[in-house]
């Protein structure tokens, strides 16, 4: 873990959604600082705002109030396409429902972030990553031809493809049985170790969170606990 400036610096972060009838306050003022290389687990009951926080940190939506510094860059006021570029460069994402592109093969899905960044020499790394997640032989298979666990492993390879400094994972094992879930988690931690990324993991699962350096707990859009461990 480095002692330099934090890779994520959040202050006064609020997010509300206004329906026709009423305004729902999802995040009510979050202040959070995450040093480079830290593994942070974000926990909390359903509706506590975990996924929204993760989404805002990744620039997937704009906050109602507050600021987010990502690797020293203020992203809360950026336009959508600028956010896309930031994401492509700095963030790897793993979703609960894998979210692979159904019209692309496993290899093409892994190559995608690099291609979107305008680079074309990623074949070797993509194959190597697929090999590391144990899918070297399935590179030309379409998502539909892969099991849930396999799809999530492709998603892991895709997330690490551009060597992002930050990796965000939202319930990455939520849709998997325990054996597959365990396998994916091990791969995630192993890859994170070798790639040296900052890992933000949203989870309900205390065992999963047990691997983290720090556990941040949310309730009703506020941080109610922040434990730095061992």
């Amino acid at each position: 873990m480095s002692n330099g400036p934090p890779i994520i610096q959040v202050s006064g972060l609020k997010k509300s959604i206004t329906n026709a009838a009423r305004t729902v306050k999802i995040l009510q003022g979050i202040d959070l600082s995450i040093p480079r290389g830290q593994f942070v687990a974000i926990m909390g009951p359903s509706g506590s705002g975990k996924s929204t926080l993760l989404g805002l940190l990744a620039g997937l939506d704009s906050p109602t109030e507050g600021s987010i510094l990502l690797d020293g860059e203020e992203i809360s006021g950026l336009a959508e396409d600028q956010l896309a570029v930031v994401r492509g460069r700095k963030i790897g994402f793993v979703f609960q429902s894998y979210h692979l592109i159904s019209t692309l093969t496993a290899l093409e899905n892994v190559l995608l972030p690099l291609e979107l960044a305008g680079e074309s020499n990623g074949m070797r790394r993509a194959l190597e990553l697929l090999d590391r997640v144990g899918l070297a032989g399935r590179s030309d298979h379409y998502p539909i031809q892969l099991s849930g666990g396999e799809q999530q492993r492709v998603a892991l390879a895709r997330a690490f493809m551009v060597r992002p400094p930050i990796l965000m994972a939202d319930e990455p094992t939520g849709n998997l049985d325990s054996a597959n879930g365990q396998h994916v988690l091990e791969l995630l931690l192993e890859l994170n170790r070798t790639e040296g990324a900052t890992l933000l993991l949203v989870t309900h699962d205390a065992t999963l969170a047990g691997h983290a350096d720090r556990i941040v707990r949310l309730r009703d859009g506020l941080i109610v606990g922040d434990d730095l461990r061992g």
């Binding site: 930031v86 994401r87 979107l116 895709r158």
Partner: peptide, 14 residues
């Protein structure tokens, strides 16, 4: 779904 995945992975609207 694809648009948001692509956006998440860094694709611009263009």
């Amino acid at each position: 779904r694809e648009v948001v995945i692509l956006k998440t992975l860094g694709a611009t609207r263009g």
